[in-house]
Amino acid sequence: MAEVEIVALLVSPVHAFEGRPADGPRPDPAGAGVESVTVRAGLGLVGDRFFNRPAHRTAAVTVFAAESLDGLGRPDPLLARRNIVLRGFPVDDLAARRGQAGAVFSLDSGDGPVRFQAHRPAHPCAWMDAVLAPGAFKALRGHGGVRCTPLDDGVLRLGAAKLEVG
């Protein structure tokens, strides 16, 4: 078990990165960064654009390590557009690798554990250079987080949490 901190939670009903990075992102709707999220097993985060989308069932929730941003001047972690941003655990190690399944892990921020099945890595895109920092796209390769399926209903909140693998 690892003591972690949930430093950011993102629930966004729209995709902010459309078009060309040179044109800049469209504004986020109010409330994209939230204090708590409601997780639904097999569906994702209530209110998020990937909630209950069949094409995103194994990628409904993205989990990201805040440490991945440290070399970029520590920009606002919400700009990475990952749903759950943690500090204190190597999140990318949870992802599925060739011939191996991703890890099952749980997060508990005080309302009981919520389990997730990790799947593929969440690769960065060219937008990262435009919204985080020049060079972020390259710097985040292999450190873009992991796409997951929630296995339990529950609630996650900003602040101290416990992460358990297995």
Rank of each mutant, 00 (worst) to 15 (best):
94 L>W: 14
93 D>W: 05
87 R>C: 03
37 V>F: 01
7 V>G: 12
94 L>K: 12
76 D>C: 08
61 V>C: 00
71 G>Y: 12
58 T>C: 06
11 V>P: 03
42 G>H: 03
11 V>K: 05
33 G>H: 06
86 L>I: 01
28 D>G: 08
52 N>P: 10
88 G>I: 08
41 A>N: 06
47 G>Y: 05
88 G>A: 08
49 R>M: 11
14 V>K: 11
38 T>D: 09
86 L>P: 02
19 G>K: 12
43 L>C: 06
15 H>R: 05
34 V>I: 08
65 A>E: 12
53 R>P: 03
39 V>Q: 05
12 S>M: 07
94 L>I: 08
54 P>R: 11
41 A>E: 00
26 R>N: 02
17 F>M: 11
68 S>Q: 04
57 R>V: 10
8 A>W: 01
81 R>Q: 14
83 N>V: 04
52 N>L: 12
28 D>R: 10
20 R>D: 07
24 G>D: 09
95 A>V: 06
12 S>F: 08
96 A>L: 05
82 R>G: 03
71 G>D: 11
53 R>T: 15
26 R>S: 07
93 D>R: 13
24 G>C: 05
14 V>R: 09
99 G>S: 12
5 E>R: 15
67 E>F: 12
27 P>L: 10
43 L>H: 08
32 A>P: 00
77 P>S: 13
39 V>D: 06
31 G>D: 06
17 F>Y: 10
41 A>W: 00
67 E>A: 15
85 V>L: 01
74 R>P: 01
92 D>I: 05
48 D>C: 04
36 S>I: 04
46 V>W: 00
46 V>Q: 06
87 R>V: 04
18 E>D: 03
58 T>W: 02
29 P>G: 01
82 R>H: 09
29 P>I: 03
57 R>P: 00
22 A>P: 00
90 P>Y: 04
64 F>A: 10
10 L>I: 13
63 V>D: 11
36 S>C: 07
46 V>G: 02
85 V>W: 01
97 R>K: 14
30 A>F: 00
19 G>D: 03
95 A>Y: 04
36 S>Y: 09
26 R>L: 13
48 D>K: 02
15 H>G: 10
93 D>S: 15
64 F>T: 05
15 H>W: 00
73 G>S: 08
24 G>W: 06
44 G>S: 05
61 V>W: 01
75 P>T: 13
79 L>H: 02
69 L>F: 14
40 R>A: 12
